[in-house]
Design a protein around this nucleic acid. Structure first.
Length: 592
RNA sequence: GGUCCGGUAGCUCAGCUGGAUAGAGCAACAGCCUUCUAAGCUGUGGGUCUCGGGUUCGAAUCCCGACCGGAUCACCA
């Protein structure tokens, strides 16, 4: 039972004994005592004022006296300030809490729910490398999966790869025309970057053709439609759909280059998937589901042959599901993918980590899946996150303003290496490999924390001109706290046990209290799908520890009981930091 | 125009299921390394929580209305 729960039982008894009134749990409000007052936890008594018909300060005092007398030794002291009853909890309670935390190897982990959650994230197109927008998506998706695991879900991480369509044909065509057989091996380029270059090349040549056609008197619409490159790309798509062996072989070859490139990026980023779906395998399934819906009357066909869903009853529009030429659209594919997934796994909750620009899409998808008889349709969660913006606005690949994921990670690790030059190299017996490994962890930690600490719903700003900080409220700050603790633990005697009761310093107490919050923080992050909640907590914990570390000596403390307590405290702070950062996908270095 | 989301210090962000004098970091300034790692610690300055109403013991937080910014409303994905 948590402290709040224990105290709530007592408060109910107190109020009943003092005023003969019953109060609901919802009327009992606890908050952390503000630092300017003495106490650990504060009861807000305003909700009782009307019932008890007394002044707030008087009620607070009376309850405080009752709790001190009948609180089974839990409440050591109290003070009442207006309607706030500040309670000082007995040191013995806190020490017991710390010991309980210490013996719990999976502290923070919630009980198994015996339910399966599938989390879809990343979902790249195979025509260009990953950029900063994908980075936010990947980091959020991975962290959400970890957080929900900690909340007792069985989680399956999944990725739907957008591997077919006109955009893929564009880079294929450009490669055929201008590539001279260039490969990742021949060029030394990562496969996804190589393909991305040809995608850009297509766009450049296409624009030239449009300009030529317009110079010859065509209007813009016509020029865009009739440009030879576009016609060729469309022809290639038709061949792809008709299983043309040559086109399929080229497609398979070029996609394999991209996958190799993506794998490298994913691995570096530290994200992974349990099951990957490919749109080329799911879009036909989607078509057949739509046909079924057509047969059951859920959808209707227009004269031109296109298939639509009428969503006007749901307050939305009409939505296209199959084009008049019978080809599928995005929505069709998502229906097919959903069907396959629910064939493959007993999914209790489906979560899509997709940017907020697709909110409408998922609102529609939810309704459509529901109409098609999928029980999970109404329950699907669109984890919608905000855009990453640059100082001059959105990232646009065509204007060359994208921040490339690989470049960014390189830059972060380089910066970390540069910053740590004077520091890490002075560590005893450090090898170059270890120094590089530290720079990798710290650089990526800085990037991940920077992105995850922002409330996912909000758009966030990234300024490439200003490098991401390594000081202050940052990942490295928290990693550093961990490394410091490890250093102390290495130097401590191997055996230390907590002897008889010691009294706690305020800094020690604040730390224990902070550690006690962790399970509730994990639950909160899970309920709100928010890695930011974990970030804020990890930062607060690190701050509390650094303050403790500065004021109180651990190894030089002469009193062996106190020394043991501080070691126990340090050890568990490190444990929780590692756990919390783990939920964010951030690794901890043993030294830095 | 309809719908959804956001607006808090010079900048980047917490706080938002109502609670005490609104918090961090960066940037600026001033201190602290013969003592467990100074990527640290301490202090100073910096606010009309966009604006106006309302709800109540109490509003950055909830409700209504403006204003500003973003997203979306495709036979794109």
């Amino acid at each position: 039972m948590t402290l709040e729960q224990q105290l709530s039982v007592l408060v109910k008894s107190a109020v009943k004994a003092l005023y003969t009134i019953e109060v609901e749990d919802s009327q009992i409000q606890w908050q952390k005592t503000r630092p300017e007052f003495e106490g650990n936890i504060t009861l807000v008594v305003f909700p009782f004022v009307k019932l008890a018909r007394k002044a707030p300060a008087q009620i607070a005092t009376e309850i405080g006296e009752w709790l001190t007398a009948n609180g089974e030794g839990l409440v050591a002291k109290f003070n009442a300030v207006q309607g706030f009853l500040n309670l000082v909890i007995d040191d013995a309670f806190w020490i017991r809490q710390l010991q309980a935390i210490d013996t719990d190897a999976n502290y923070g982990q919630q009980p198994d729910r015996h339910q399966l959650m599938m989390v879809e994230y990343s979902s790249p197109n195979t025509n260009k490398p990953l950029h900063l927008g994908h980075v936010r998506n990947n980091l959020l998706g991975y962290s959400i999966a970890r957080i929900q695991e900690a909340n007792g879900w069985k989680v399956v991480k999944t990725n739907i790869v957008n591997d077919r369509g006109i955009h893929i044909c564009k880079s294929m065509l450009a490669w055929l025309k201008y590539g001279n057989g260039e490969t990742p091996e021949s060029s030394g380029k990562k496969g996804d970057h190589l393909i991305g270059d040809y995608y850009v090349r297509f766009d450049k040549e296409y624009k030239t053709q449009i300009a030529e056609l317009m110079a010859a008197g065509k209007d813009e619409e016509t020029a865009k439609r009739e440009a030879p490159l576009m016609l060729e790309a469309q022809e290639m798509l038709r061949k792809w759909e008709a299983n043309d062996p040559e086109v399929r072989a080229l497609w398979a070859k070029m996609n394999s280059w991209v996958y190799a490139g993506f794998d490298e990026t994913y691995q570096r980023m530290g994200v992974s998937f349990d099951k990957i779906y490919y749109e080329s395998n799911t879009y036909l399934e989607g078509k057949s589901e739509v046909e079924k819906g057509l047969a059951s009357g859920a959808f209707y066909r227009r004269e031109d042959g296109s298939v639509w869903a009428d969503l006007t009853k749901d307050g939305l529009d009409e939505k296209l599901l199959l084009r008049s030429d019978g080809t599928s659209v995005y929505m069709t594919q998502d229906i097919g993918t959903a069907k396959l997934r629910f064939q493959d796994y007993p999914i209790d909750k489906m979560v899509y980590v997709v940017g907020n620009e697709q909110e409408y899409h998922f609102k529609v998808l939810s309704i459509l899946l529901d109409r098609l008889g999928f029980p999970f349709g109404k329950e699907l969660v669109h984890f919608s996150y905000g855009m990453v913006e640059l100082p001059n606005g959105k990232m646009k690949s065509r204007e060359g303003t994208v921040v490339d994921a690989d470049d960014l990670m390189d830059k972060m690790v380089e910066d970390a290496k540069e910053i740590s030059k004077d520091k890490v190299n002075t560590l005893q017996g450090i090898t170059e490999e270890e120094a590089n490994e530290i720079a990798r962890k710290v650089g990526l930690g800085a990037l991940k924390y920077f992105i995850l600490k922002v409330d996912p719903r909000k758009n966030m700003l990234f300024n490439p001109a200003e490098s991401i900080d390594f000081n202050g409220n940052t990942g490295p700050f928290i990693q550093y706290t961990y490394a410091r603790i490890q250093s102390v633990l290495r130097k401590a005697e191997s055996q230390w046990t907590l002897g008889s009761l010691v009294s706690l310093d305020p800094k020690e107490l604040a730390l224990i209290q902070r550690l006690c919050e962790y399970p509730a923080i994990v639950r909160n992050a899970g309920e709100n799908f928010s890695p930011a909640v974990i970030c804020n907590y990890a930062y607060d914990l690190a701050c509390d520890f650094n303050s403790f570390y500065h004021d109180l000596s651990i190894l030089n403390e002469p009193d062996s009981n106190k020394r043991a307590l501080r070691l126990l405290l340090a050890k568990n702070v490190a444990k929780v930091i590692q756990s919390a950062l783990g939920l964010l996908g951030i690794e901890v270095p043993e030294r830095m």
